[in-house]
């Protein structure tokens, strides 16, 4: 057993884990953060994407012990005081999800992308989410949603002031 101390969605946890425990399994099974999903076993699908110290990672490819001392944000931690993150809103408005299984990872990666590139063109969005597979949408509405969220998150837009800073900061 190894000890992991980690802050997940703003809450501090300390747990003993087997070193082999993947971060995604720790989140789901120990912390009950079942919003983060597992879609493959080769790091291709991105369904398990979370933010680790502000950067998107595939939580199936990080050991829980590697997250010791880190801050983790999951899909369950990006809405603020009941208000959805602009990317969440945009996914609903643009019908960017169907079965919803890729959605948590897709949203977390989209937030990271917008942190790096606040105004991406279509190709930049497509490349920015290339590590997240979706089988339902053909990606078109996901691309629309990310671009729409980018507009909402621009400085001066009404939504922007309500955006949690740590999340809007995304990949930085």
């Amino acid at each position: 057993m190894a000890q992991v101390r980690v802050t997940v969605d703003g809450v501090n946890y300390a747990d003993d884990v087997e070193p082999r425990t993947l971060l995604v399994h720790y989140l789901r099974e120990r912390l009950g953060k079942t919003g983060t999903l597992v879609g493959c076993d080769t790091s291709n699908c991105g369904a398990c994407t979370v933010h680790l110290n502000g950067q998107s990672v595939k939580s199936c490819s990080v050991l829980a012990v590697q997250a010791d001392g880190a801050e983790v944000t999951t899909i369950e931690g990006i809405a603020c005081d009941g208000k959805l993150h602009p990317v969440q809103e945009a996914f609903n408005e643009k019908h960017a999800l169907q079965c919803g299984y890729c959605t948590p990872g897709m949203i977390m990666q989209a937030i990271d992308l917008l942190g790096d590139n606040p105004d991406p063109d279509e190709q930049e969005v497509r490349e920015g989410i290339e590590g997240n597979l979706c089988r339902c949408t053909g990606y078109q509405n996901i691309v629309r949603a990310v671009q729409s969220a980018a507009q909402k998150m621009k400085p001066g837009s009404p939504a922007q002031t309500d955006t949690p800073v740590s999340v809007a900061g995304g990949g930085n």
Binding site: S43, S61, V62, D112, E130
Partner: peptide, 9 residues
């Protein structure tokens, strides 16, 4: 190389 998430790690 790979994708954004992988490039972070």
């Amino acid at each position: 190389v790979a994708d954004n998430q992988v490039r972070h790690r």
